[in-house]
Design a protein around this nucleic acid. Structure first.
Lengths: 332, 332
DNA sequence: GAAGCTTCTGTGAACGTGCACAGTAACGCC
DNA sequence: GGCGTTACTGTGCACGTTCACAGAAGCTTC
């Protein structure tokens, strides 16, 4: 039982291939009579266009590659991913494009991705969460293929367009909130300093506190809960009089809470804790976390819009920066 | 600057298309001399096979569709997904297959998926997390295309092969642990009763407790944290003398902890709490959750193996059930 | 030395589509 | 009634690959 081709549809509708093809591709020159005949023939035969054949002649594939360049273990810890995937699939589907997932965690993966993309197997690339110095970006950016990123790509802001949350604003919002509540000794636990979130959240923090943001009050984590706990312990040892701590992610904040509890500090009475992300962890901790919400859905949507603009032939698009929002719960 | 074709490679290597094609497809009849010449020509020209052209003649696409049939909002709350996606991409890549993501949350989506798959745009289907009575399963299962599921598909166990954790075993492990620690009034908060996890975890619980598993001690949730909190409150109202509760997911268990705290019960002193999944939430709660670990990576691997077996032409494969493991932390 | 293997190679056809082009009919306009 | 324009249709070709087939060359066997 062979699948019907455009030929079969044409025969069933009593027209030629060309006319069917024109209807399929939205050409305006199709008579009403032909139109209904073809539409009926299509539904009768159950015809579905053969993408391979189409690709062969159009030189387009009808698919976009989503490249996840996190090291494998950390993959998907970020709620960012799930939203982006969901939004991407939806928006691509509207254009009859499909989403192909690729990993770029190690060198072998990266080579595979480059081969795939350079081989013309995707019409565009959706980059996710690349750290500074990622060699993939260079290769893809110069590949001539439309590529965008959800979240800024450090060191390549001008190569790869992106949509991102205003990380600095978020950090300022939290820090200013601490200040407005009368906190005096405000510390920070940052993310890795080779990621946008790591760098820019610290920048926002420092912008508000100025000279009061001393090295002594800053510790670094790697986004994991364990690292948050470690960093908090370290901060308490260095500066026992801390009365607030801004943690660059909710997961690390959960770790910080554990460290504070172990040290006998009450939250928020003794030490106020602020997280970042408004992830599901934020409401499962005790107390629930005051945190910064990123507009994940809008970020994803804007990222896709940028990609579509490039796919439609735009030579250049500007990055999009979206505002964050302070979510007050019980930890601060 | 056109992309090199197999023709160009053949010319550069001084052989014919056929020989290059044979090398590419692993045919054994290629002389050593031709082999090196072609390999050099390939790397010199940067040739990458055109999948569209290949598909056209082989009738295979080189891609597998992952169909996510959860309603959109809940998507990816399950840590199961991320592991499966990661493992799937890796294992598919080894066979030079790519992973195409599709949503099947509503009717429109589902129709799209069926069209896509029926249209021959994928060589196989990877089904994820379908509830009972999902119409998609019927359609895909009878479509003649290789299809497997990660996690059992209720009501279609014989239609779609699957790899899953032994949910019942996990529930028994937790319940037996409660019993062995001298807990007398053991309650349960289940998942939705149209999911394998909802049904089978309750079954395991009931298997251990027998007649002691009364309706009064059972409440239902929908996997969300809020539902866990609600269910716990309800249970406390119905049976104030509860001294243990088995919650069918960690996220719901986090909600249950909040309800217990609100009711002034100490965990685990007054009430022991057991979760399920060993997700990241399990260690961010206070106290950390005693829970059941599912072998997510193995489940994903076995699922892929089943799919590969079908792709390789196996007429039938048996489901794979993998054992769970009790992880003791502080909540019980 | 003929016949039969094995090993290797080249060639034509086919896969299903979009696109450029040629062509036809109807219509309005002077 | 000739001419340009608009609306529509059919046809040949090209896209890059695999596959079946035919055939050549070298080796073994009788």
């Amino acid at each position: 039982m062979k699948r019907p081709t455009i030929h079969d549809v044409a025969a069933a509708a009593g027209v030629s291939r060309g006319t069917v093809s024109r209807l399929l591709n939205g050409d305006k020159y199709v008579s009403p009579a032909a139109r209904v005949a073809i539409e009926r023939a299509i539904s009768e035969t159950g015809y579905v266009v053969n993408r391979a054949a189409r690709s062969l002649v159009t030189q387009r594939t009808g698919s976009v590659a989503m490249v996840l360049s996190e090291p494998h273990e950390k993959l998907f810890e970020d709620p960012n991913y799930s939203t982006l995937i969901r939004v991407a699939i939806r928006m691509l589907a509207e254009r009859d494009l499909s989403l192909v997932m690729m990993l770029a965690g190690d060198e072998g993966d990266r080579e595979r991705v480059v081969r795939y993309v350079r081989g013309g197997h995707a019409d565009g690339v959706l980059l996710v969460s690349t750290h500074a110095g990622d060699p993939l970006v260079e290769t893809l950016g110069s590949g001539g293929l439309p590529a965008v990123s959800c979240g800024a790509v450090i060191g390549h802001e001008n190569v790869i367009p992106y949509a991102a949350a205003d990380e600095r604003l978020g950090a300022r919002q939290m820090t200013e909130y601490f200040v407005s509540r009368g906190r005096k000794r405000i510390a920070m636990i940052t993310g890795p300093m080779d990621t946008p979130g790591g760098i820019q959240r610290l920048e926002g923090f420092a912008e508000v506190l100025g000279r009061k943001a001393t090295q002594k009050l800053i510790a670094h984590g790697d986004w994991t809960q364990a690292s948050g706990e470690r960093a908090m312990t370290e901060l308490l040892a260095r500066s026992p009089d801390i009365d607030a701590v801004f943690v660059a992610s909710d997961l690390m904040a959960a770790g910080a809470l554990a460290a504070l509890r172990a040290a006998g500090r009450r939250v928020p009475d003794d030490v106020a804790v602020g997280g970042f992300d408004d992830s599901s962890v934020a409401v499962s901790t005790h107390p629930p976390l005051t945190t910064i919400r990123q507009p994940l859905a809008e970020m994803a949507q804007e990222t896709m819009r940028l990609l579509f603009a490039l796919l439609d032939g735009a030579a250049h698009v500007d990055p999009v920066i979206l505002p964050t929002e302070l979510v007050v719960r019980e930890s601060a």
